[in-house]
Design a protein around this nucleic acid. Sequence first.
DNA 1: TAAATCTGTTCGAACAGTTCGAACAACTGT
DNA 2: ACAGTTGTTCGAACTGTTCGAACAGATTTA
Lengths: 254, 254
Amino acid sequence: MTSEQRRPVKTATTSFAILECLKERGPLGPTKLASELGLAKSTVHRHLKTLEQEGFAVPDEGGYRVGLRLLDFGIYARNQHQFYEVAKPKVDELAEETGEKVWCVTEEQGRGFHLYGAAGKQSVRTPAREGTRSYLHQLAAGKAILSELPDERVEAIVDQHGLPAKTPHTITEVDDLFEELETIRERGFALNREEIVPKLHAVGVAVTDQDGYPVGAISISGPSNRLKGERLTVDLANLLLGAANEVEINLNFS
Amino acid sequence: MTSEQRRPVKTATTSFAILECLKERGPLGPTKLASELGLAKSTVHRHLKTLEQEGFAVPDEGGYRVGLRLLDFGIYARNQHQFYEVAKPKVDELAEETGEKVWCVTEEQGRGFHLYGAAGKQSVRTPAREGTRSYLHQLAAGKAILSELPDERVEAIVDQHGLPAKTPHTITEVDDLFEELETIRERGFALNREEIVPKLHAVGVAVTDQDGYPVGAISISGPSNRLKGERLTVDLANLLLGAANEVEINLNFS
DNA sequence: TAAATCTGTTCGAACAGTTCGAACAACTGT
DNA sequence: ACAGTTGTTCGAACTGTTCGAACAGATTTA
C-alpha cells in the first residue's frame, strides 16, 4: 500500500530531518545539527533560516527550537477527525469516573496516534503524550483497532512496520497477534499487560462507524497492581464498552 | 530582527506551501494543487509522496489531507512553553467560573499563538482555535503582551507585520497603538471591543516572568452585550488580574 | 588584555537534484 | 463504449542545493 518511494524530494527530507532532530535533541545550533545529521554547516544554516521564515523553527537561547506554527497544523489535523470531538467529552468523563489515565487513539498509516488524553485524580505518568505515535500492537487501544480491521490490512501493517518489542511481554510474532485479535473480537475488549511499559496495564475498546470500520479506540491505563482482576476485566471493561457504544451512536448523528 | 532572507531553500518552501494549501483548501489532489500553486502536476506529485512518507500528508478520499504526524510536533512545541502547563488549569478554572471563552496566548516571532482555550457553559463560538496564529494588535491578550514589551520591540513587530485591520475598530495607526498600550499599562489590563470580530468583546492580562518580560497573556472573550460595563472592566478584569498573578507566582517556582 | 577557540554567517563554483512537459495508465461518469 | 478527468512515470534541461573555505562575532582561556 504505502510502498517505498523511488525518488523522494531529498531537499524537503533534510528540512524535515532537521525539524525531527530539533524535537528529539532539544535546542540546537547549525554546528551541532550539521555534525548530528552529517551535513555541511552552511547547508543546515540555510535550512534553518528557511524554517524560521516559515515559523516552523524559532531561535532560542542555545539554538533553534520547534515553532508553534506546527501547533496550528497539528491541531487542524486533529480537528479533521470527527472521532476526536465526539470522543473527547467521554474521555474526560471516564477519567473523572475512574481516576485513571484515559486516551482516545486513532489509526493513520498503520500507526496509532494519541489524539486526546485526560488524567484522572490518581493517574500515573506514562511516556504517552498528545500527538504521540505508537505501534498499534503495543497499545490496548491499538490492538482493539487492529481487531476490527480486515485481516489483509493487519498483514499489510505488520509487513510495513513489523512487530518491534518494548518489553518482554510485547507481541512479536504474527501468529500470536492474530490469536490475540481473535480473543479480543470474542470478548469485545483488548487488554495490555506490561506490553509497552513495565508495571502498566490497560483496557481498550474500538469505536466503529456504520460500516463496522474502526475510526479509533478508547483506553484506560494505570498501574498493574490497581488495574487487575475483575476491576480490569469486568468493571473498567464494561465502563469502556458502554462509553464506546455511546460514542458510536453520537458519531452516526453528527 | 527577522529580516528578509536572501536565499531560502526553494524546494522546502514549496513542500510547505503544499501543506499550507492542504490546510486552507481541504483535501486536494495533485492536479488541483498544481493549478492552485502554479506548479507542474508531476512536481506536486513527487512532493506529496515525500510528505506522505514522512507522515505529514495522508491520502484521503478526494485527495490528500494534513497528517497527524504534525500533531506530534505541534504538541511538543506547545509543551516547551512552561507558561502553557501553568496557565492551563487557571484557564479551565476561569472558564468554569465565568461561563465565557478563556484563552492563554503567547508571542512568537511577533505573532500571537492561541496555546490553549477553555469554553465556559455559555461561551460563544469564535474563529479562534488552539494553535491559531493572530496579529497581536487584534487581540486583548496580544495588546496586553505588547504593553509589557519594550517600545523598540513593539516597533520592530509593527514594522515586520504591519497593523492589518479585521473590523472598522481595529487599531491601524502606530500612534494609536502606543497610546492604547500606555492606557493598558496604567490600568493593568487590555480591552478588545469588536477589534477582531464584530460583536465580540474581550479582556486580557499579561503574565510576566521575574524580569518583567511577558511570557504570555490570559483573556476572557464573549458577546459584546454580555461583556460590557462594570462586568467587563471591573469584575472580569479583576478576576483575570488575580489569575494572572497566581500564574506568575507558580511560574517562578517550577 | 590579548590570544585562542568556539559559534554563526557569507560566498562562489561544482555538482546533484528538482522541475517541467509529454506520454501513459487508471478511473469516473455519461 | 467512450470521452474526460486524475494520478503516475520518465528523461532531459536547467535551476537550485550542497559543500568547503574564508570571515566575523562571541565566548573562553592564558
